[in-house]
């Protein structure tokens, strides 16, 4: 119910964003009316977590516009918290924000930049869609449905 309510609220406020999301999983886009940054997301997925209380999220961020934008944070109605991290050789560090250059692509992928989703509720199931809301500085927010994939899923294989 809560999820439907927030979706309705979004639908009223951001028709363009939702139109851009379409129905196919893993794709979302927003066209900022005010600026030159045009952000879209492809290939969003969440490996079915081995622990129910935490998961990683991966996607590819595209900016087809003439101006850079900055990803300042991600939220999800299905997660208690979502943070952006960068894996290093032996640990990971917080990413407060991520620059997306004009006509550039930024990849969140295994062993690199990733989302850490804590407290997912309900517990993710294979094939489920988990909504991610990406907030930007210099561009409108983007909403995308990330698909829950097998734990060992690798895009393009």
């Amino acid at each position: 119910m809560r999820r439907r309510a927030s979706a309705l609220a979004l639908a009223a406020a951001l028709p363009l964003v939702l139109a851009g999301c379409g129905s196919s999983g893993g794709h979302g886009s927003a066209d900022a009316a005010t600026g030159g940054a045009r952000l879209s997301v492809t290939g969003a997925y969440i490996p079915l977590p081995s622990m129910p209380d935490m998961a990683a999220g991966y996607f590819v961020l595209h900016n087809d516009g003439d101006r850079a934008a900055t990803l300042t944070g991600v939220t999800s109605p299905d997660a208690r918290s979502v943070s952006m991290h960068q894996s290093t050789a032996s640990t990971m560090v917080d990413l407060p924000n991520v620059q997306v250059p004009a006509h550039g692509t930024v990849t969140f992928a295994r062993d690199g930049r990733h989302l850490m989703l804590m407290g997912l509720h309900p517990a993710p199931k294979l094939g489920a869609r988990i909504e991610l809301n990406l907030r930007f500085e210099g561009a409108a927010p983007v909403t995308v449905q990330a698909t829950v994939q097998p734990l060992t899923y690798q895009p393009g294989q």
Partner: peptide, 17 residues
Amino acid sequence: YTHCPDVCPTTMGDIAV
């Protein structure tokens, strides 16, 4: 460690496959 979202499950997953 198990509460490791990215590298640990990726490593174990690659080995498991």
